[in-house]
Design a protein around this nucleic acid. Structure first.
Lengths: 142, 142
DNA sequence: TTGTTGTAGTTAACGCGTTAATTACATGGG
DNA sequence: CCCATGTAATTAACGCGTTAACTACAACAA
């Protein structure tokens, strides 16, 4: 069945939901001069240590051309380091640097407060349910 | 509780979910030289007839600066018409034009097929549940 | 009428999303 | 070794997202 109105359209609902959630995090990121995408890349590197560019782009949900730009910005601010993979001159390996880890640590408390507030308002159970559904949708379509 | 991995992060999950869903619709839009945002604007106008710019931006989840650009593009292709509101020289009223309606009609069958396929793969019940949760989240945070 | 304040749109600047093209390197066949 | 093919990353081009600044018009008070 086609959604008869834009409000019950899945793409629109996903867009809008993401919008209202990100509105809560944006001021925090802006205060530290980090874009949303740079933040995602940093978080993946923080979790995983050293990651190759292709995998990093995939895990941070960023396209390769964007990642190239983001790497330049983050490398310029000493948040990450960029090296060629040994054994394959095409691949690039990214690693989080001390300044990058420091930024992650500095933002964590505020991040927690915002996340907890969303969770409390929305309901922990509902949040888990929503994450499960999204995961199912993603795995089924990708 | 902070999400310990990016996969269970609400913003990331919403982004990724939207990504995999839109991947299904993008080829259709590209084939008709319409961007995703132009398409959203057209759909709102198609549903609502004449709408003022501010409300249109809100309903199509597009920011005012983007709407200005989109209006130019759609007006240039005769998909919509743009008029000043009578009684208030600041407001702008947008109306769908025949060519715009024709595009909506032309894409509807394909849109239905894609939407039905997603619904079938994901499950109708789950889809309703997901839309309900998203709506709750949106209403609670906005 | 004039000046102030508020509102609707637009413009500007910069970064990202998307697609296509290009460069650099790797791999495998002759 | 040489060439064709494939892959990783980059670059290019264009539109949108985001914020801030600006313009045009409206509303209202003195």
């Amino acid at each position: 069945m086609l959604p008869e109105n834009t409000r019950r359209s899945l793409p629109m609902a996903l867009l809008h939901a993401r919008e209202v959630v990100m509105a809560r995090f944006r001021p925090m990121l802006a205060a530290h001069d980090v874009t949303e995408q740079q933040w995602r890349v940093l978080r993946v590197l923080s979790e995983a240590g050293s990651v190759e560019a292709t995998e990093l782009a995939d895990r941070a949900s960023v396209l390769p051309p964007s990642l190239t730009r983001i790497i330049k910005a983050l490398e310029g601010r000493k948040f990450i380091t960029r090296n060629k993979a040994e054994g394959d001159g095409r691949r690039v390996v990214l690693t989080i640097a001390p300044a990058g880890s420091a930024l992650i640590d500095a933002l964590s408390p505020e991040r927690r407060i915002i996340y907890d507030d969303i969770e409390q308002r929305f309901g922990q159970e509902r949040l888990e349910q929503l994450l499960d559904l999204l995961e199912t949708l993603i795995d089924g379509e990708s």
